[in-house]
């Protein structure tokens, strides 16, 4: 009987210890996330064909560009998306904060007739993480 009681006390003590430890670890933890623009729709991107897709169809598929770069008989539509993840430990007397930002960029080259010439698309936002690293390179 006493042994069962002791077992119960031990379990409660262990639970309390785990809650305290968890509370200590989680105390002052802050996690936040921010995004700028809309993620580039890769399904729509696959429908754009070089030498075929006209300007209006590009806009229908991807929306209005975030920026238009004009040059010698060429227009470039730029679409961008930024993703940021931010972990922090705020203990009042000692604070560590990290903000990791990555970007996706899509450039659609259009010739003088408004037909897609080329596509340049780079995706980095898959790699954005909640790593807390105020130190290091």
């Amino acid at each position: 009987m006493r042994s069962r009681e002791n077992g119960g006390v031990m379990t409660s003590a262990r639970k309390l210890f785990i809650y305290l430890l968890l509370g200590l670890i989680m105390s002052g933890c802050v996690v936040s996330r921010g995004r700028v623009g809309n993620p580039i729709d890769e399904q729509s991107l696959q429908q754009i064909e070089k030498g075929v897709t006209p300007r209006n169809q590009v806009v229908e598929l991807l929306g209005a560009p975030d920026r238009i770069i004009q040059g010698n008989e060429t227009d470039i539509f730029q679409y961008y998306y930024y993703d940021a993840k931010s972990p922090a430990i705020i203990l009042g007397v000692f604070n560590i904060f990290s903000l990791n930002i990555k970007s996706d960029n899509l450039y659609v080259f259009l010739d003088k007739h408004g037909i897609t010439q080329d596509l340049i698309y780079g995706k980095r936002t898959d790699g954005v993480d909640f790593t807390l690293r105020p130190w290091g390179k």
């Binding site: 007397v93 990290s98 903000l99 930002i101 080329d118 105020p134």
Partner: peptide, 30 residues
């Protein structure tokens, strides 16, 4: 006590070793 450290990283750094694959006149922007 009273110490705060903050860091903001924008994109992954690109090093000289990371662009060794580029051959001018051959490699495309894509």
């Amino acid at each position: 006590v009273g110490c705060g450290v903050r860091r903001v990283d924008f994109n992954t750094p690109i090093h000289a070793q990371g662009v060794e694959f580029i051959r001018p006149g051959e490699t495309t922007l894509q």
